[in-house]
Design a protein around this nucleic acid. Sequence first.
DNA 1: GCGTAAAGGGAAAACGTTTTCCCGTCAAGG
DNA 2: CCTTGACGGGAAAACGTTTTCCCTTTACGC
Lengths: 330, 330
Amino acid sequence: MDIRGIAKEAGVSISTVSRVLNGTKRVSPEVAERVRAVVERYEYSPDPSARAMVLGTTEAVGLVVPAVSFSFFNSLFSALAGELATAGYQVLTCTIRQSEEEELRYLELLRRKRVDGIILMHETSDEAVLERLRHSEVPLVLATVDTPELEVPSIGVDDYAAGREATEYLIGFGHRRIAFIDGNGGGYSERQRLAGYLDAISAAALAPRLERGDYSPGQGQAAAARLLAGGEAPTAIFAANDEMAIGAIKAAEELGVEVPAGLSVLGFDDIGLCRYTRPSLSTVRQDIDGIAKTAVSVLLAAIEGSRPAGRERIVVPHRIMPRASCAPAR
Amino acid sequence: MDIRGIAKEAGVSISTVSRVLNGTKRVSPEVAERVRAVVERYEYSPDPSARAMVLGTTEAVGLVVPAVSFSFFNSLFSALAGELATAGYQVLTCTIRQSEEEELRYLELLRRKRVDGIILMHETSDEAVLERLRHSEVPLVLATVDTPELEVPSIGVDDYAAGREATEYLIGFGHRRIAFIDGNGGGYSERQRLAGYLDAISAAALAPRLERGDYSPGQGQAAAARLLAGGEAPTAIFAANDEMAIGAIKAAEELGVEVPAGLSVLGFDDIGLCRYTRPSLSTVRQDIDGIAKTAVSVLLAAIEGSRPAGRERIVVPHRIMPRASCAPAR
DNA sequence: GCGTAAAGGGAAAACGTTTTCCCGTCAAGG
DNA sequence: CCTTGACGGGAAAACGTTTTCCCTTTACGC
């Protein structure tokens, strides 16, 4: 049933039906009631494509998310999707697997205006992609990630401060050999976290020790194993996310090192399973709901106000969650 | 730039441009080349809404997923999204939080044909919702879940067999007191799993022991704590998912029960972290990629063939993954 | 009683495509 | 040389809305 059918059934013109539905213009109460009854009866609602075409707006937001199985991203994704749904927006998801090639898919989203706005949880370094993003007329917002090359708002924790405080937390326990396992090195916010670590280390006149992971528990385990193998093994490991920290604990277990007695391990994110590892994982908590709420409200403001929304980092608080995997150095 | 602009620039009619783009009808090579050049130059691509309106197809698939942070669902979601992207479909995500009320959002999806097909990862028992789903003209497919009341294909493991084999696996270790921690009791496939457990137990002339969880590690821990508190504590626990199994291990740890020496724990799903728990978690693996590939291909067949695709359970294999959390009963 | 304004509602244009008709041209076959 | 068919391409309808423009009616103030 289309609007024409409703109009005929109610004995009015399609203009009137549209006006009743959208409240665009005053309609006499009797007529409005009559129309509403018919609409109700046929469970009519206007075709989104037709609406999109004439209105130039799709009531949908694109969510670009890396196709990783890390709990943090998944939770953030859920939270964002929930917020958007509450705000009445549809969610168009783009999962990015092999980074470089597939990004074109979401660029398509914004070139042809399939969405009213986009939330990126995925960091790009490809210059061609960046160039496209810069000239996008669709409002863009970054969640968790940060890309200084882009003149758009980004929402997330202060990664530098978080990295620094986390390291200082371990220093406060008397640790002198503190290693950092970072991610794949691509991201800006990741480098910020690393910078925080390095500054805290050098402020305490310690020597940094770095291993590369890829955010997966397997690589966390491998990196920790490399760290623990050497002669001057660290007494504390700070991992860039919880999954790698969990891998690090596993590595310690396999090498016969007790956590936290022989090795302190500190994670990042505070995923749901932190409380259930053995020992439970101390970590740096990111406020996922806060990030989601803020990101969505910033994006919607940009969409509805249609103002360009320049570059600006909106900081959401983080918090160190002390659990059982960190202890004073012996 | 719209199709009219391209047509003018190329010196042809819009019909010709459309034909070149869609290959609908033969166009002379010279003209086609000229049009293609202009299309290329302006990076033109047709407006999806306009296309959707005239074609009656949106090239999008709705993905209805419970808003839970369980690794299994997230992985399955990613896999499905990836498959759909590969097939050239957009992914419209609906996360369901409070089950009953929010379901109406995705019903909206199918009533007004915003999508060409829907994949449900979410089980419904609400009769009104079921009724709507039954009369949907949009092809529907169930992934992992199963709802016999619906005449649609469903893809997933044989939950009954999996539950039975898992229990037999524990019986094979000589366990006599084997408890089962199930989920929130709502789902059909969950009841199948339970039925498999019960049948295996009674086939071995053992006594069943049941505790209710909600798939979260917290409730898994609580359920296991209740089980271990009693006088006749089980020597093995089979949990309906890995998160609850991890909670069960935690409960054992806190009560001073060694796993697997004092208690065997068996999970379900084989999430990524199974290998990294302490001890590593034995579990029943579901083939996520297999489910995703099958679900998408079945759905696309239904969309493109536009055949009703009646009720049918497509079974994807499962496999018991022996790790360190299960051991012979003492 | 007349002029004017406001209110209610209809006709039609517009959004950007795809596709159905239709028309002209050219080649081939009788 | 004429007819027929194929082929290439254009005009216009159709998809389902929203919104502008316009007309009619009513009320109100003088």
